[in-house]
């Protein structure tokens, strides 16, 4: 057994270019997974936080009765709380949000609005419901960009899964041919399996480690760039690391295992 393992390691050295390529593909797939999963994880945390703070700004026509309008808005399904933001208060908020900018507006030039805190479930329809109320001029939702970002993240998730499937299929096809030939040369099942499994484990561990390093550097960079907006970007969790190492070893070996099954069928 030790002899076969040594030979497998020698085989990796003998095929340096192919081994490095495989490890890089695993690293890329691991890194993509890390980026996707940490984005989903952090957005999940943010969603929890933001869903309690979802707000709609309801701008009204000049001369509208603010109290009556507030009462009507509070009756709309999904509205949790209503607050009138006067022109003066809106200007204060603007100044707080952009402390480094010189705000040259007067209180009258910034429009007042009614701020409605809304439930996450009602986000989809609430804009239309609010616009139907007489006296409402425009409705601005604070969460529309959030949905677009989530769609983008799910698209990247599909992409990274696609890359992983591609790697598995490619390795199955490549190994299938070699395994058939080895059988014809008189290789026993043990002699075929062990080198592939050992090289799968070595490539998987190496590839995953490179992926972890990339993610660590990437996470630090993201944390630094988004520190104004997000309170601590979580880039590596224990669960993620365990999963990536397991999946990478699986990717390294899966193609080979599939090839054994297919070549056994082929003999019938």
């Amino acid at each position: 057994m030790i002899g076969v393992v040594k030979e497998s390691l020698r085989d990796i050295r003998r095929h340096k270019r192919a081994s490095v390529l495989l490890a890089l593909v695993i690293s890329s797939a691991s890194f993509l997974f890390f980026v996707f999963s940490s984005a989903v994880y952090n957005l999940g945390l943010a969603e929890d936080n933001w869903s309690k703070q979802l707000r709609a700004a309801v701008f009204f026509v000049e001369g509208a009765d603010v109290n009556q309008l507030s009462e009507q808005i509070s009756k709309v399904k999904g509205v949790l709380e209503v607050k009138h933001i006067s022109s003066e208060l809106a200007l204060e908020i603007l100044k707080k949000r952009f402390p480094d900018e010189d705000i040259v507006f007067s209180a009258n030039s910034v429009p007042g609005f009614i701020e409605a805190r809304i439930s996450a479930d009602a986000v989809a329809n609430i804009s239309l419901d609010l616009q139907r109320i007489e006296g409402v001029e425009d409705v601005s939702l604070s969460s529309s960009w959030f949905k677009s970002l989530k769609d983008l993240i799910y698209f990247s998730a599909l992409f990274s899964i696609g890359v992983m499937i591609f790697v598995m299929v490619l390795s199955t096809i490549l190994v299938f041919y070699a395994v058939r030939l080895m059988r014809l040369c008189g290789a026993t099942e043990f002699r075929i399996r062990v080198p592939y499994v050992v090289s799968g484990v070595v490539m998987g561990v190496f590839g995953a480690s490179v992926g972890v390093c990339f993610q660590y550097i990437f996470g630090k960079a993201v944390d630094k760039s988004l520190s104004q907006f997000i309170d601590g970007w979580v880039s590596l969790t224990t669960m993620q690391v365990v999963f990536v190492y397991t999946a990478s070893i699986f990717i390294g070996c899966f193609g080979n295992l599939m090839a054994f099954v297919r070549s056994i069928d082929d003999q019938q």
């Binding site: 070699a178 030939l181 014809l184 002699r191």
Partner: peptide, 28 residues
Amino acid sequence: MGIVFQDFKLLWDRSVVDNVCLPFYVWG
């Protein structure tokens, strides 16, 4: 046995010497 095919069935990612030595390699 030694088996030879019309389409050669060589391993393209291995050098000529590795292809020739393949039987010894798989036998350990």
